[in-house]
Design a protein around this nucleic acid. Structure first.
Lengths: 104, 104
DNA sequence: AGTGTATATACATGGAAGAGCATATATTGT
DNA sequence: ACAATATATGCTCTTCCATGTATATACACT
């Protein structure tokens, strides 16, 4: 479980912007540096945090490192959210049944 | 969108435990204090952060305040995750088509 | 081998955030 | 009105984290 590490990684605005940018595929570190207004060392550190959280993966390409998002991380997020929805559905069902029983 | 505020609120382990506990419905502040090993003032502060992020809502009940989770917050999360999945599906489709075209 | 390029890491620093304590602000009951 | 209970908030302290600078490491090219 430990989902809070996942959330911690996405909590920083710069990291979230990096992840959002990665919707469009793989990015080299230098490309990210150009778009984000932050120093290269910062980008590398952010990428390390994202990688440790399992959100991104790295693929070496010559002297560059291409980073991309891992679908499995979003599977975890989706499963987490879904577990709440199941709880609510149950509660709404109970509410609905209670209303049906009481009124009408 | 500013989803990073949502993630920031869920990034703290204590806050995440509070949210997890709220799967089972409404909780008064004092009840949370009993289960979490933290001072009451801390719980109140965490609840304020969760409320400002739109994750929980409050309902006064006498001298107590009953907190519960807001389904809409999870709608936002779910939508966010879903937008990534759409991107991947498109990319996988392209990959699939490319493979079909090249091999066989 | 040596030079240039791309990325990662060690270090120091400023600022944010979480913790407990004390106190303020309801609300209930007498 | 007063005492008791429940919760929120101001304060201080400490810890953590993001940042930039400087440096190390890895790779490419000649």
């Amino acid at each position: 479980m430990e989902e809070h590490i996942l959330f911690q990684a996405l909590a920083d605005p710069v990291r979230l912007r990096i992840v959002e940018a990665m919707r469009s595929g793989e990015w080299a570190v230098g490309d990210i540096v150009e778009r984000m207004d932050i120093h290269q060392s910062g980008v590398s550190r952010h990428l390390r945090i994202l990688a440790e959280a399992g959100i991104v993966q790295m693929r070496p390409d010559g002297q560059r490192r291409l980073y991309s998002v891992r679908a499995q991380a979003f599977d975890r997020l989706e499963a987490w959210v879904a577990s709440y929805r199941r709880h609510w559905d149950r509660r709404l069902d109970r509410l609905g049944n209670a209303l049906k029983g009481k009124s009408v």
